[in-house]
Structure formats: C-alpha cells, structure tokens
Design a protein around this nucleic acid. Structure first.
Lengths: 157, 157
DNA sequence: GTCGCTGCAAAGTCTTTGCAGAGAG
DNA sequence: CTCTCTGCAAAGACTTTGCAGCGAC
C-alpha cells in the first residue's frame, strides 16, 4: 500500500494513518475489515475529485475487476464512512450525492461567468466566521461550499 | 446573536412585478400562461419555506383542490422556473431538492444533513470579505452562494 | 464456528416522459 | 384552429433492502 501524501497541503493525512483510523473504527463497533471496505477507502483516498457512488463503483471495477464489488456495497460503505464522519457528502444541485474524504483539504471557488475559469481560494477569516455562525445557530458544522460568481480580470478588458 | 441575522422576510419584488416578469418570460419563449403555472408561482411566493416538489404539490392540493394539479406539472414548472433563474434549488442529500424564489432577499444557507432542515442567515462580515476577496483576485463579483452543511440542534440530541 | 458482510435482484423513492385530450393565444 | 399544456400512468434513475452463501475473527 502506497504511503504517500497528496500534493494539496499539510492538512492532508497519510493513508496509513487513515487506514488505521478506519480499522479502529470498525473494531470499536464490532464490524469487520473486509477487502471491499479497504479498496473503497483507498480509492477515495487516491481520487482528487468528489465521487458519486456510481463513479466510485466504476473506478473499483476498473482497478479491482476481480473483486466484482457490488454497487450495494459501495452505498453501504459510504453510509458507514459518512456516519462515522470519515467522509462527507455534498449535493451540488445536480442529482445524487458526491462524496469525498474528510481528511482532504478544503477550498472555495471563484467562477468567471464569461470564460468559465475557476480560481480556488481559502480565506481563514471566512472559515472562522462560518464556524462561528454555525455555532451561534446551534449547528454542528460538517462542511460547507461557497462559490463566488463574477467576471475575471481577463474578461473585464 | 451579534451580527448574525435570520430575518429575511422582506421581499425585494412585489408579486405583481414577479407575475409580469413570468408572463414576459413565457411570451418570449412562446410558452403559454396557464392557471397551473400561475398558482405554482403564487404558492412559491407566499411560502416562507423552501419547498420540495412534493410539499409544493401538497400545498396546491390543499389550496386549489379543484385544479387537481399533477405532480408532473409541478416538476415541469419548477424546471422551467429554475432554467430561467426565477427560482433556485438546494439539494441536501438523497431526498431530493428544495426550491425557493430567487426574487427574495439574498441569504446563505445552513443545511442539516440529518433532517434536511434549512436555516437562512446573512452575515455582513462574510459578505464584505467576499467582496474583498473578489477584488483582490481581480474579479468583478456578480453573485455568490454559500451553504454550510452540518447537524442542527434538534438532530444532535 | 459465529455472526457480520457481500452480491444479486427485487423493492422503494424520486423524477421524467409518452400520450391523448384540454385549453391558451 | 394551432400548438402547447396537462393529468395520468408507465418508464427511468437512483438508493435501499432481503436473502442465502461467504469470509473475517
């Protein structure tokens, strides 16, 4: 199993750590560590995108064709991981949920409505403020998404 | 609750204005102004909540039982309104989308991933910061959307 | 060996589509 | 009149569940 970090930033944790967290979680709940659960975690870890259950299932069929992992197992494992906060799910307005590992870093998007260019950014002040607001309103904040729409400097010319 | 407010009930557009916008939109696209489309717009306007297609359909059956508006028409009209940016939709999980009129005042959303409850808020500090960031990165900001996902106080119990 | 896990297929949900008659322009 | 809309029901898309055998512990 590769012991690598992604090139995102220092908030990303290593796979070995993630895997042992997962095993600890399973043990604590008298659940079993199966090869299907392992490859699902690994595939989520190695993906830079938000995955739908279907796209994750597809990836598994490509990378581990011998396992013949069923879509039902993908759904069941994602629910398990989400319930234990190891992955978060987002719905972006389209149909269905998308999942990503909670261990990855977060960023927001500036989207140019003219050329479609997307700039990523993270702003600590906004991040802090979001936590504050969630707390004020009694929410246990899990994740957030923010998009700013506008016209980029190039397109303003 | 310092700078956070959930007071969002001021309408930016009156219903008459909204209705004539809707009629203009229909005319422009050679579509017809039907009683079903009207009551759907009106019901959205008079609701302070985010409505699912199903809950909107329910409201229509209560308020306009004689029309017997079908659920398919609700879906079709919501799609039409969304495509033309008169309503916006939010997704909060596997249980479908919720819709609201775009004509209402700007606000952001806190979405409970357990029960789907949506709380609205406006925070000046974040609004200001978004403008600042857009400016810093050379964007002419037009709009933005922000969703915080978490677990509401009720569901934490 | 026990008991949870898995794949499969069937069953649920939610949403869209085909169609023939109704109705707006 | 013409051509779009509508309600209905069937079809589709997505997700969950029941079950019998498999496999981790």
């Amino acid at each position: 199993m590769p012991n690598v970090t992604t090139d995102f930033n220092d908030r990303t944790i290593e796979y070995e750590q993630l895997l042992s967290d997962f095993k600890a979680l399973l043990k604590k709940n008298s659940l079993k560590f199966t090869i299907q659960r392992e490859v699902i975690l690994e595939t989520l870890y190695n993906s830079d995108e938000h995955l739908t259950p279907e796209s994750l299932h597809h990836l598994l069929q490509e990378k581990f064709p011998d396992l013949k992992t069923g879509i039902a197992t993908v759904y069941r494992t994602l629910s398990l991981l989400e319930d234990s906060s190891m992955v978060t799910s987002l719905s972006f307005g389209a149909q269905g949920k998308k999942y990503e590992l909670g261990a990855k870093n977060h960023h927001d998007h500036l989207i140019c409505t003219e050329c479609g260019n997307i700039t990523e950014f993270v702003d600590e002040q906004i991040e802090d403020r979001q936590h504050f607001i969630a707390k004020e309103l009694g929410f246990l904040m899990k994740d957030h998404s923010m998009q700013i729409y506008g016209i980029c400097s190039n397109c303003q010319k």
